[in-house]
Design a protein around this nucleic acid. Structure first.
Lengths: 206, 206
DNA sequence: CAGGGCGGTTAGCGGTCGTTAACCTGAGGG
DNA sequence: CCCTCAGGTTAACGACCGCTAACCGCCCTG
């Protein structure tokens, strides 16, 4: 796949600005005119790119969930391949670290999307909501499986609760102040990573 | 103060139902007619109790923030008194445990309010929003102070980030399934408590 | 150089929302 | 016995919102 250096298409501009606005003021709190103005066109011009306001939210939420799940699957496969072929410092702990790292990257780089992800799900039409819910569930179950490999004594319901709670922890990035006031991306990522591991350890090594 | 055994007043009914509805569908997603219907009166009847829809949200959010801060101050005072008078198993660690316990109680018992608390803040008028923000900031700083007593090596910005992140963890209760599907309140509370302590330890004992 | 369609524009429609106005009723006190 | 007033009701207004209709210019192609 080519790393895209192209200018973003108009459609992508719209999605990005819509995500920001939805995250800031809520889906119902943003008008189509505002979304249009954010990309330099006005109101109804959006309907050349999307069938409606709902469709923008749907594409955003499905995209987020799918991207998270796809990334996690890729990391899982990479780690399994590594541990299978060579005797490096891998193992289930490394896979868990990789999942955490991926989620943190997402939470730090796409804050508006992380905000929308657990906030505006109920505004979707039934079909879209079911799809997003299914992707989210797969993502959670993937984490639960890896977590229980690291801590085999952990029962499944507890593992699931722990995963949801750590998502809450990692998704707290929007509350950590604007990107400028952060002590640096790497520092924040490391802090979140250690806290997530600590939280898991506290419930897994009971 | 008398522990209230009275039937809830109409005003309290309205606030409770409004909180539930706002949490479910967002502030802009709920009409005044629905709030009225939820308490058995209809639409404009609400204006005998509140000057407007905004005022309901404002009272809810200020109430939450104030209640959290007041409870935390009380716990801090109680713990300080205990450690000051006798040589029991207290100390800053016990204070931190008490803060965590209080926050968990709130997150488990008032899920709609916890949801609103970090979701609809921007819908407030400037004055109200400033007040809520100030209460929230005091609450955070109180936690930061206690946390840095437990882990003196922890720098202040890191401590503040850690507190926000643990709030994210504790406030994940709305995602843990409906109250019925939980493995029992005490079990969930214990799990959250251990995870919070583990997360703090992981960043404090670096 | 004609023409078609992509990507815009403005005007406006229908519905919904928060709020106000005007009216009503039943209980309590002088 | 009347008056007041708290706590409702319905009707309606004005604003806003999502979306459609109708129109238009530019670029690309045959």
């Amino acid at each position: 796949m080519a790393t895209r250096t192209d200018a973003p298409t108009r459609r992508e501009q719209i999605l990005k600005e819509a995500a920001r606005l939805f995250a800031e003021r809520g889906f119902h709190g943003v008008g189509v005119d505002e979304i249009g103005a954010a990309v330099g066109i006005s109101g109804p011009g959006l309907y050349r790119h999307f069938p409606g306001k709902d469709a923008m939210l749907a594409e955003l939420l499905v995209g987020i969930s799918d991207s998270l799940l796809t990334g996690a699957k890729r990391r899982l496969a990479e780690a399994d391949g590594a541990t299978g072929s060579g005797a490096d410092a891998g193992g289930p702990g490394a896979v868990l670290d990789s999942l955490i790292e991926g989620h943190i990257d997402f939470a730090l780089d796409d804050r508006p999307l992380i905000t929308l992800h657990d906030r505006e799900l109920d505004r979707l039409r039934d079909a879209d909501r079911k799809m997003v819910r299914q992707l989210q569930r797969q993502y959670v179950e993937l984490w639960v499986g890896v977590l229980r490999e690291v801590y085999p004594a952990l029962a499944e319901p507890a593992a699931r609760s722990a995963v949801h709670s750590v998502f809450g922890l990692l998704n707290s990035t929007p509350h950590l102040g604007r990107p400028g006031s952060l002590p640096g991306r790497a520092v924040t990522a490391s802090l979140l990573h250690r806290m997530a591991r600590g939280a898991f350890a506290a419930v897994g090594e009971a």
